[in-house]
Design a protein around this nucleic acid. Structure first.
Lengths: 220, 220
DNA sequence: CCTACCGATCGGTAGG
DNA sequence: CCTACCGATCGGTAGG
């Protein structure tokens, strides 16, 4: 299923129109539609669930015919895993950027925890945030092998949290067992994907404040 | 779909054998299999998800033929809702019992919060705990009307938590906004259904300790 | 609660 | 990436 078998010319990329793309001959087989397919799949998987979403739904949302998703992905399950993988890689990258950005300003653990939590809410609830919720809530639908690959990425995501929580435990600001605290904290944050409503709820900064106060009693 | 159209005699209930039940004529149409159907459905819905479970799977798990679940429930969706409804009613009842039991011993808010959390873990992670996880993680698959009915039961379940959290806020032991704290706390607890493993993880008491320390810095 | 069955939908493929 | 299509599975029902 070689995606790059017929490479796109730069021209065809540059002159892509804004709205629903008309398929000109020049755009055929260029692989440009793969990201669109991923986004459509992520949105549908998130809102309807993996099994309640048909590959026809996804194709239609991406403006394709029913058989076309299988040109880009060899199965529906491969599409699901690709959504999760893309979500985790993007999350790791955004987390590293957030920590870089803050590093000069924040050297204390409280400030670093705040950075991590605020960024986590952004990834989970901000614009275009369908990929991570799909990963969190559709884990049953992937194969053990795929799950293992994702678990590794999740481990990478958790790396920066560990020294921060350790330091807060040593300073007495975090009283709970560190490993259990980490699991409970991620639960508190991740569950927000179930109830958070941009229009009715608090802002992400207010949410971050509440989480900081709940976990360590101060806001940074 | 009258479940009680042919009522069971007491004898047929008493002499029900242990293993896979042989269907004697006396046991026909007696409605006794409905709870078994619910349990089988809960287990399968929890481990495979609603859409990945076929009504044939459920029938087989309950020792029935493929069409028989529809004698007890008018649709697969009705079965799912029944699982959730049963789960919530049982949870509310067990919570009330736990609070009754503790009322004489615990009058302070910290102790009452501990009782609520410990009981919540029990409902979520203890023996026979498939119903509530199904409710938590399959909410997308029920109708708005069914969801509204469940939201009401959930509200009932949350009632005892509110005065406790309010009191802890006033006493300064809980620093976060009470409404957001409640949502974050439920998230931390509910997420445990995703990762808790009786064999590898902490006991429910240790989990409760960790949660108490994380949220209010003390264990009661 | 079983038997026998139906219509619809679905994931996936061949061939262009 | 489209067209045309297939085999399998599924929820649900009639009739006993």
């Amino acid at each position: 299923m070689p995606v790059s078998s017929a490479p796109a010319t730069e021209a065809s990329v540059a002159k892509r129109p804004r709205g629903r793309p008309r398929k000109t001959a020049a755009e055929r087989d260029d692989g440009n539609r793969r990201p669109e397919l991923l986004r459509s799949a992520a949105r549908l998987f998130r809102h309807k669930g993996f099994h309640a979403t048909s590959t026809r739904d996804i194709a239609a949302a991406a403006g394709m015919q029913s058989g076309s998703p299988f040109y880009h992905f060899k199965s529906k399950g491969a599409l699901l895993h690709a959504v999760m993988d893309e979500g985790m890689r993007s999350a790791i990258e955004r987390q590293q950027q957030a920590l870089q950005r803050a590093k000069s300003a924040e050297t204390d653990s409280v400030g670093r925890l705040r950075t991590l939590i605020r960024n986590h809410f952004d990834i989970l609830l901000g614009p275009g945030s369908d990929f991570i919720p799909v990963m969190l809530y559709e884990a049953r639908s992937i194969t053990p092998r795929q799950r293992a690959a994702l678990t590794e990425l999740q481990g990478e995501y958790e790396v920066p949290w560990i020294p921060v929580l350790d330091a807060l435990y040593r300073s007495g600001q975090l009283k709970a067992d560190v490993k259990l605290a980490r699991l409970l904290i991620f639960g508190a944050l991740n569950w927000s994907a179930q109830w958070y409503d941009r229009r009715k709820s608090a802002t992400l900064d207010e949410l971050t404040d509440a989480a900081m106060k709940l976990f360590i009693g101060e806001t940074a």
